[in-house]
């Protein structure tokens, strides 16, 4: 396991593996076969020039916990939905808020915000001064506009 990725230990003693994104899917599949059946979380950190994607894997039976990190310059990483079903909503959340495109995700829609929302709020360059308003259309679906309209 050690030669597949660079290895570090974080403050709580968890092992951190840094994996290039080309090898991510292969690496994750090997971890899943090892018994890491619980994908605890997926998150992204905007480091300004690149985005760091963090995966926390946990084995419920063996009580082991590891952290996998990968970086991306063009905001795309392979999706792990084929390995863990919980990745579905996690990846949708990260797409919505951080703007990471997960390639191979079956249904990459926004999780919290309406589809027409402009920008990804957790990005460091997101313009907070540009207010967007949410209204509801005839079918009950939400949409966002820059124009407050009558509803507001």
């Amino acid at each position: 396991m050690a030669d597949e990725g660079q290895q570090q230990v974080d403050k709580a003693g968890r092992q951190i593996f840094k994996v290039p994104k080309e090898k991510l899917l292969e690496f994750m599949r090997a971890r899943k076969d090892e018994g890491f059946n619980h994908l605890s979380l997926i998150t992204g950190v905007d480091r300004k020039d690149h985005i760091e994607v963090v995966y926390h894997l946990h084995s419920v039976e063996q009580d082991r916990y590891i952290v996998v990190k990968t970086t991306t310059n063009n905001c795309t990483v392979p999706s792990v939905t084929s390995l863990w079903r919980s990745a579905n909503w996690d990846e949708r959340e990260q797409w919505d808020l951080m703007g990471i495109k997960f390639e191979g995700h079956p249904n990459l829609k926004r999780m919290f915000l309406p589809e027409s929302w402009v920008g990804h709020p957790l990005r460091k360059d997101y313009d907070l001064g540009n207010v967007q308003y949410i209204n509801m259309d005839e079918d009950g679906e939400d949409y966002s506009t820059f124009d407050p309209g009558d509803g507001w």
Binding site: L97, R110, M111, F112, L113, P114, P121, L122
Partner: peptide, 11 residues
């Protein structure tokens, strides 16, 4: 469908 109480506490 969720997100009606979203206020992005993380941001």
């Amino acid at each position: 469908v969720i997100g009606y109480l979203h206020r992005n506490a993380e941001k």
